[in-house]
Amino acid sequence: MVIRSYTAAPTVALALGLFTPPVSIATDTIVFTAAVLVSPAMGQPDTLTKKQSDALNVYSNAVNRFKSILGQRRVQINSNQRLPNLPGQALYLARNDMMSAYKDLTDALPSKIGRPNKFGIPPAYFDADSEPLLDEYRKLFDLMDAPPAKAQNSDTPFKDVVDLGIAIARAKGLDAANAEAAGRISLGLFFAETNGNQNAGNARSNRYKGSLQTGPSEDQIGQKKWSAIKKSVAAFNPALSRRDKMEEARVGNLDHRLNHWTAVRDALMSTHADIFPQVAAIAKTLPDPIDQMKLFELMQIIPTPTRAALKSGNLVNCRISDPTIMGYLRNNSIFAFGHADRARTSATFREILDAMWLFNAKFEQARSQFDEIKTG
């Protein structure tokens, strides 16, 4: 899940089952020796510089803080204790601190860059030995981001997102091929916001919720924009129009964000529908579907600069240098880890897209799911 340009939101997954037995946090402490490093080639210890030793100690402390907060939240959840307001915030910051400290460590000591990890995080930013910690992190967010009791699920959540994306794109004048691309992009947004879990809550924000994690004003804007095109949609897709009427009746006076269908529909209309007509041009500039998804995700993170970049005629080389915008990117885990990344004062959109590697796995999953829907 991304952070809007004016607040914070987590990477989340929805809890659908029983509590998961806790990962052993206290007994799994990673122990570092700050004074020496054993060289794999020599088999003998090499003396570290003070900078390297300090970086090793900072990383060790960051790992232990992350473990401590993971353990605290697990105990609170398993014992049914009342959680603090925004219980995911401390977890999120501790995870970021750990990754930042590791990047500083590998910058100072490149030999610490290890094997690839199952999350697809660049090895310079994450030690694969810490995979169980991120597993537990995700399990805790599964539980903390469970949907509200009144949330209205769909039996076909992925297909709903694709169908709505395609229908909205068609209403905006796209041909069949480009409308399908809009449907794939829409599914990517769903996975980016909630790991593909419908009606998710938000353990790091009291403002955002639902399948595309929108705020109240975004949802209201989306409802109004949908009203303006729904007759057009009904003309070429009466089945989708009937489904829409059914879901409108079902949600009634509830918050539209508590119904998967209306939450997705309103979110797409509010933020992305006006950009769908540019899908063909975007695909020429960014032929990789993952890059296309990333660009539309940036519409949620930094909408005004992204719109300006699209109008510039030189999207990939358009440069962001405003400190506030750079801060919004960092709040969304882009240029957020390590002193070198955080010291950046500007970046082109090509550099921003490349730095969105935490989104890669989500978008790959969305692309695979889209292919299943289209072939199924």
Rank of each mutant, 00 (worst) to 15 (best):
L254V: 01
Q365L: 05
A15Q: 08
P147I: 02
M42H: 14
L140Y: 01
R344P: 02
R307E: 04
A8V: 07
N332W: 12
G120A: 09
A35W: 00
N57V: 13
F370P: 04
L86N: 08
W357K: 02
L109C: 04
K159N: 09
I282V: 14
Q213W: 03
T324S: 07
K103S: 10
H260P: 09
W261E: 03
L164E: 08
G165V: 10
T304L: 02
T27D: 14
Y125I: 06
M98Q: 14
S217W: 08
L86D: 02
T348D: 06
L329R: 12
Q300V: 11
G120C: 06
P289G: 05
E131F: 07
L18S: 12
T20E: 13
I69Q: 05
K118Q: 13
P110N: 06
I69S: 02
Q52C: 04
A169H: 07
Q223K: 15
K112L: 08
Q152L: 15
M293A: 08
L83I: 01
G71A: 10
T375S: 11
A149K: 12
N197W: 04
I352K: 04
V251R: 05
D255K: 06
A55K: 10
M299A: 09
G222Q: 05
Y6H: 14
A200K: 05
A228I: 04
F370A: 10
L140R: 11
Q81H: 08
Q152A: 07
V63K: 09
I334N: 12
A179I: 03
V264F: 04
L358G: 12
A26T: 09
I221H: 00
D266T: 06
A366P: 15
L93P: 00
V23L: 09
A108I: 08
A281H: 08
N317M: 02
I69L: 02
H339P: 00
S24A: 09
L240F: 06
T348R: 02
L16H: 14
R257W: 15
L295V: 07
R257T: 14
V162A: 02
W357F: 15
